[in-house]
Nucleic acid binder design. Sequence first.
RNA 1: GCCUCUUUAGCUCAGUUGGUUAGAGCGUCGGACUGUUAAUCCGCAGGUCCUUGGUUCGAGCCCAAGAAGAGGCGCCA
Length: 477
Amino acid sequence: MQRIPVKEVLSTDPSGQQITVMGWVRSFRSNRFIALNDGSCLGNLQVVVDFEQFDEALLKRVTVGAALSVSGSLVPSQGSGQRQELQCSSIEILGDCDPGVYPLQPKKHSLEFLRQIAHLRFRTNTFGAIFRIRHQIAFAIHEFFHNRGFYYMHSPIITASDAEGAGEMFRVTTLDLHNPPRTENGQPDFSQDFFGRSAHLTVSGQLEGELAALALSKIYTFGPTFRAENSNTPRHLAEFWMIEPEVAFADLNSNMDLAEGLLKFVIGKILSVCEEDLKFLHDREVEEEKTKPQNERSEMNLLERLRFCVDHDFVRLSYTEAIDILRNSNPNKKGKFQFPVEKWGTDLQSEHERYLVEKHFKKPVILTDYPKEIKAFYMRQNEDGKTVAAMDILFPGIGEIVGGSQREERLELLERRMEEMHIPAEEMYWYLDTRRFGSCPHAGFGLGFERLVLFITGMNNIRDVIPFPRFPGNAEF
RNA sequence: GCCUCUUUAGCUCAGUUGGUUAGAGCGUCGGACUGUUAAUCCGCAGGUCCUUGGUUCGAGCCCAAGAAGAGGCGCCA
């Protein structure tokens, strides 16, 4: 008999039909009720066992975590917790699970503990929900762009370009580390390396994305990126996934519209498609909030935050306006900020961003037109000569979730800026060629995929929304 | 990289001023239980108190160094 996913069974009207279901035991209660989960959805199928019909030795092997194939008839449940249940006529143990050594017990586990057994944490309700939602978010992102005429472009993962300056890079090499070939001055000779030159893992697909956008008009990348920064926070990973759309004939305003539209579409989609998993994470967060002191509890719960994002326009304001607000804010006047806001031109600290998003506006904020000194070389210079057409989207609890800009399409201005920032123009000939041959206004942004998953699932640590997190000192599994 | 905190049973934690035999809940295991919903009831077992060194008659507790984890900051997405 063919296996039917639990998700399908749970949406079937029970009428005594014979079915086979395979999954893993979540609990075995009263020597009678097996809760069987196959990961197709959050819910378990209740399998009812009449122990007189089964060998006692077989039932002893029905332990938490064991893989079973069960067959029987699907009938309306007599209990109140579920619509249907499987009256079991046969049980086959596909894989035993020794409860004495199996780390997952039918009890609460801390996220820190589960992180240490990340290879098994998929089997918990929480991580099942997170990774089902993660899939749906990825799918919704592709759907959004595809429906709007964007082409999915695969930017390279290994790159010889290290000019973008988005962060420290991981080197890719096949040279013998103990005895590399040397140049005259004693440095490793990368001309003898695999690619005939120094190579690294990409920190961003943006520059290559621009090349494609200046021919295909609308492209997006969605792939892994790597940063060898020694970042130890709940918002950073050394390996993370990034979505980077790039649009020709677009300015900063349409760039903001695109980013806001994308976030609203994806969040809205998840609200409708992942109702059950979201509700579970929502309730989980509500329970967790109860353990916190009153003043640390968030004003909105998870579902409220998500709906709020979909229903309200993001606040758009310039860096200059933000500085004014911050300068005149109560915490600044009362010296509550660790870094007081004084002069125009300094970068905002995360405490300032949090104040704007969580206290002042209480909604997502798009900050625009930053001082050129604190932004990347490729951002388009504004008429004031001081700022660039940049935009960052700040989310409550997450901080920067999107960073983007209109790109500098004017060759002379771009070359001058690169010179000022000591970026070798000759190595970037291929990038500058776009400005030499049919340059046009264009814009794009980078969206941190895991930060979006973090926001939508309501989790607090980015290491809990990617299956196998990579961060300083850790590449387990 | 910097700052703060944490590390005691499989898990989550308590452990008084440094004092003799280190506790609880949950889980496991054994037993009872045929309508349970992370069932319930009874019982047993389970410890390198993170590691190393030091102070002391005596250290889970004090000191030093190291390791691991968490939070904050910086870098950013």
